[in-house]
């Protein structure tokens, strides 16, 4: 996906928070990235390194919490683990599985000074 745009989105969220809450340094940024969100983790890490330069979060530790994929299998009527949007249900082998978890891309929290 477009990791540069995502990195810029993260910077925007961090800077908005810095303005609103008046902190001057961010030492850690924790992100929640779902495995179904289509984000290339290494690329995002690289882009963040570039984008955060010169900002309150320059040099901040980036921690990515990877959220596992979950889907609702219509045939089994229950939530099952999946690793891709088109995964078959691990129980019944059916493909009527709707992704319900692991699609998120969020800034969870910041460690600030």
């Amino acid at each position: 996906m477009h990791e540069m745009a995502l990195a810029e989105g993260i910077l925007g969220i961090v800077e908005d928070a810095a303005r609103a809450q008046g902190f001057g340094r961010v030492s850690e940024v924790r992100l929640e990235i779902g495995v179904l969100a289509g984000v290339e983790i290494d690329a995002l890490d690289f882009c963040l390194d570039v984008v955060l330069k010169g900002s309150v979060a320059e040099g901040a530790r980036i921690e990515m919490l990877i959220v596992p994929g979950q889907g609702w299998c219509m045939q089994c009527g229950e939530t099952v683990p999946i690793t891709a949007r088109f995964d078959a249900c691990p129980k019944c082998g059916g493909v009527q599985v709707q992704a319900t978890g692991g699609t998120e891309m969020r800034v969870k929290d910041l460690l600030v000074e």
Binding site: I13, D109, V112
Partner: peptide, 15 residues
């Protein structure tokens, strides 16, 4: 300065 945790919980594509 003192380190503190700031809850954000915002979607990256929120804007």
């Amino acid at each position: 300065t003192q380190q503190r945790m700031v809850q954000i919980e915002q979607d990256i594509l929120g804007k």
